[in-house]
Simulated scan of single mutants.
Amino acid sequence: MSFTGFPPAGRALLARLPGLDPAGFAAEHTAWTTLLLDPARGFVTALGAVLVERISPGLLADPRVNGSIAPINRDLRFDPHGPRYKDHLLFRWWERDRPKRTAPTLFVRLDPTRIGYASGMVFPSTDQWRTAVADHTTAQGLINRVRRDLPDAEIAGADLKRVPAPYPADHPNADLLRHKTMFQLRWTQPLPTAVSTPAFVEHCATQLARLTALHHWLHTTVATVAP
């Protein structure tokens, strides 16, 4: 399926989804498929081919829901009274030589007005991550370079308040050592006008290419170090 862009009507529907109940979503199902899901499938395949060429030959693009396309329905277990549907599309391309859940992954998040990019992973084990980031000459130096290039980027996943033992509180990689389950570097920007055209693939590829060194480090160091 070729990609021609996400049409304005599709983005307008995306903005309305959180206000729908299941009956309302069923009534919009044809529009959902035509305006959002079908373009999403084409986008995954088209951008995936570029990412394989420019960033990593091992990246997998699976143009299915629960593959590279996250489900549009929300998990209500932790928020049973919240909206049933998301206001954004989330895409992922992950390294095929690792289990999807813990593979180094590139992300694109599309909402009605903004676009987000990220590189990250869920750790196969906490010890595996700590062994990798304890060497500040590789880990922190790389993160600092990425953040200099992307001043608006944020790091998610530092869920511990203190640096874990046996590492000292003033360890050069203190912030990274406070990650227990996952790491992600991400940023957002206004949605480009190219979103409605095939050129959106090139726009996203250019942005994700800024994460190439980080993605390679996650894949070759964190994902392979012995726990």
Rank of each mutant, 00 (worst) to 15 (best):
M1D: 14
M1I: 15
M1Q: 15
T4D: 15
T4I: 08
G5C: 00
P8V: 05
R11C: 06
R11L: 12
A12Y: 02
A12N: 01
L13Y: 03
L13C: 04
R16L: 08
D21M: 07
G24L: 03
G24P: 04
H29E: 15
A31H: 01
T33R: 12
T33W: 10
T34I: 13
L36C: 03
L36G: 06
F43Y: 13
T45R: 11
A49R: 05
V50A: 12
L51A: 04
L51G: 06
L51E: 05
I55H: 02
G58W: 08
G58M: 10
L59W: 04
A61W: 04
A61S: 06
A61Y: 00
D62M: 03
D62E: 14
P63G: 00
R64S: 13
R64F: 09
G67S: 03
S68L: 10
S68M: 07
I69A: 01
P71M: 12
I72C: 07
R74W: 13
D75S: 02
P80F: 11
P80N: 07
G82A: 09
H88C: 13
F91T: 02
R92N: 13
R96L: 03
K100Y: 00
K100F: 00
T105Y: 05
T105C: 07
L106Q: 01
L106H: 03
L106N: 08
V108H: 01
D111H: 05
P112R: 02
P112E: 00
T113G: 09
T113C: 07
T113N: 01
T113S: 12
I115G: 00
I115C: 05
G116D: 06
Y117D: 04
S119N: 06
V122E: 13
T126A: 05
D127R: 06
W129N: 03
W129E: 03
R130K: 00
A132Q: 08
A132H: 09
V133C: 08
H136F: 02
T137N: 13
T138H: 13
T138P: 11
A139G: 02
A139H: 10
G141Q: 09
L142E: 06
V146K: 01
R147E: 15
R148G: 13
D149G: 12
A153H: 07
E154I: 12
D159P: 11
P164R: 06
P168L: 14
P168W: 11
H171T: 12
N173G: 12
N173V: 06
N173H: 01
A174P: 03
D175R: 02
L176M: 04
L176Q: 07
R178H: 09
K180G: 10
T181Q: 09
M182S: 15
F183T: 01
Q184S: 10
L185W: 00
L185P: 08
R186I: 10
W187A: 12
W187S: 07
L191T: 10
T193S: 11
A194L: 13
V195Y: 06
S196F: 00
A199W: 11
A199E: 14
E202L: 09
C204R: 07
T206P: 00
Q207E: 15
L208K: 05
L208N: 04
A213V: 09
H215L: 08
H216Y: 09
W217T: 05
W217Q: 07
W217P: 03
V225M: 12
A226C: 14
A226F: 15
P227F: 03
